[in-house]
Design a protein around this nucleic acid. Structure first.
Lengths: 336, 336
DNA sequence: TTTTTTTCTGAAAGCACTTTCAGTTTAGCA
DNA sequence: TGCTAAACTGAAAGTGCTTTCAGAAAAAAA
């Protein structure tokens, strides 16, 4: 009826059910070690009081929090979201809570990395698409924070990466196979802040190398670095497509950017894929919807795997750090 | 040098600096009550050890945790993500931690709602696009959990809603204005699980009412309820567009579903917007990219506002619950 | 029935801090 | 110089739970 002034503690339950607090704790944590009659009466008291163990107290006594943190770039790009979904699905299955630390600047990343491990308020940390330095990595290991990196690597830490260069190669091979002769690349090569995506360079590298190996060139003017915003991607796409001799095929380092290109092409009445082939990277949900040919990296899977690896290491910290390399494949649809 | 197995506690600092733990605690919490020499030497020890008070321990002694929770449907639809982005931006500014509780079933929602407020490990709760019942609402208020609902309402709780019916009306008016005579609706009307979106019904209602008022009909066969998955939306779209006399205008209750329709139309070689007008709802990021005409609800803004309201109530719980009604507007682009 | 096991259970010791209480110093002022 | 008030500080008592330890009770074996 009346809102309880104080929520009941394990002591209240103990008193009401006439057993000790240890027994209450056992009923909650290892019910099989408790007589079924006792169990029943304790449960009754628990229900009657509406008792729920305080998470903090439990965490402190137990030395773990059943909570894992995710450090992720702030801008909620579809690709991050999908990874995140994978993480969440693995975690909620294991009954872990998910704490998000959105990173919107270098300083914030620094701040998190230096405080998180010390606060000890999470059992493990997933760092998504964020580049950390030697010192950070060291700090994390020193403080015994179980960590897994996605998209980046450090020998001491678990990691999940993809072979970005190979991704670029796949794109190039495919386009070459289609008979294209002139190419362009659009990607976030020189991010405005260092904490952003770096793998893009590798994708470009794989792309150019393969082109060169086939005796084809990728002129400087055809390599556009545009940050991950619609406006700037579009601008870059516009410039590429307005060149005197525009390329017939463009490889975008992300699906989102590929879509920008497509939009610009549509505006310029350039037919896809006839006049222009566009190939993306990621294979986000929307890609299928929009018939975008792209290099698939298994986003959901990478998140899920990351969570699973992390959990397994938390369960057994003696395991060596794992480094997983996820496969990439080209998904052929309508744009290239 | 050697990686510390355990991070230092207040006891370590006490020992090193030769004072009692109480003094350490005071240095940290009320520095003015401590002799400046003592203060200095304690700080030195703290730095030397790299000591940081464990968050849990500290949070439980004080009464706040600087942490707010977000209860959100599991399927990471773009619209949730954008809201989430708003929440995150408001929160990270205020230095709050963000805990996500992904809801993938009715039971899970129940479970969260019954345990979250009692665990007392968050200061406030944002419930996104999830319908809760009277009992849940009561439980939340009884337990003094500051809560804000997005998309749903309860008198006792803060809330942010939009006028869904008006949204339907806007869509109808616009399409009528364009001279359309036959219409269809695609939306997630009868969600497979009750925890999902309900406002869609209101959108439909506003749509039909406006149509009727203009003497236009929306035949049963033109109202399709499809869950929020690509496959099923597409199937529904396909069926609508394959009718003997297909509609010339479709209102989709979400942008994602509108995109499904567009894809199907493309496959059937139906020209948009000439043969078919499509109008969505949400105005997700991608909508602009794809030139989708849609009803804009300010997703980022709604999340941000939710966080701000919540924070303000946490700061001053005596404030009455706030109920905000966010405006809706039609964004005209290329698909209708 | 007696002896061994096994199963239960409570007491008590953490866990990492905050806070109250009371004792010491030190400073302030005749 | 003596006395009171102010400033510090440490001991110890919480905080709400988990877990170890050991004793008691019950079940199984002899």
């Amino acid at each position: 009826m009346s809102p309880k002034k104080k929520s009941p503690t394990i002591y209240d339950v103990a008193e009401l059910s006439g057993v000790s607090i240890s027994t209450i704790s056992r009923v909650l944590n290892s019910p099989d070690k408790v007589n079924s009659d006792t169990h029943k009466s304790v449960m009754k008291a628990i229900d009657q009081l509406g008792f729920v163990p305080r998470a903090e107290a439990r965490a402190r006594a137990r030395q773990n929090t059943d909570r894992i943190g995710v450090l992720t770039p702030f801008f909620t790009a579809p690709s991050f979201v999908q990874r995140f979904r994978g993480v969440a699905s693995a975690l909620s299955k294991a009954n872990y809570e998910l704490v998000i630390y959105p990173v919107d600047s270098m300083e914030r990343l620094r701040g998190y990395i230096s405080s998180i491990p010390l606060m000890k308020n999470i059992d493990g940390l997933i760092i998504m698409s964020l580049s950390i330095n030697e010192q950070d990595a060291q700090r994390l290991t020193n403080n015994g924070m179980e960590t897994i990196l996605i998209e980046y690597q450090y020998p001491q830490l678990n990691s999940i990466v993809i072979d970005d260069e190979h991704g670029g190669q796949l794109a190039a091979e495919y386009l070459i196979g289609k008979g294209h002769k002139t190419f362009a690349f659009l990607g976030d090569i020189e991010p405005p802040e260092k904490f952003a995506i770096h793998p893009v360079k590798s994708r470009l590298m794989g792309f150019t190398k393969t082109l060169q190996a086939a005796g084809l060139a990728l002129p400087e003017a055809h390599i556009r670095s545009a940050p991950y915003t619609q406006e700037e991607s579009r601008q870059a796409a516009y410039e590429i497509l307005s060149l005197p001799t525009p390329p017939t095929a463009i490889f975008a380092a992300s699906d989102v950017q590929a879509l920008s290109i497509i939009k610009v092409a549509r505006e310029l009445a350039i037919k896809i894929p006839d006049d222009l082939a566009v190939i993306g990277f990621d294979d986000i949900d929307m890609a299928e919807q929009l018939d975008l040919t792209t290099i698939r990296q298994h986003l959901d899977e990478s998140g899920k795997l990351a969570a699973e690896i992390l959990l397994s290491r938390i369960a057994d910290p003696s395991r060596p750090p794992q480094h997983v390399n996820l496969p990439l494949n080209l998904i052929e649809r309508q744009t290239a």
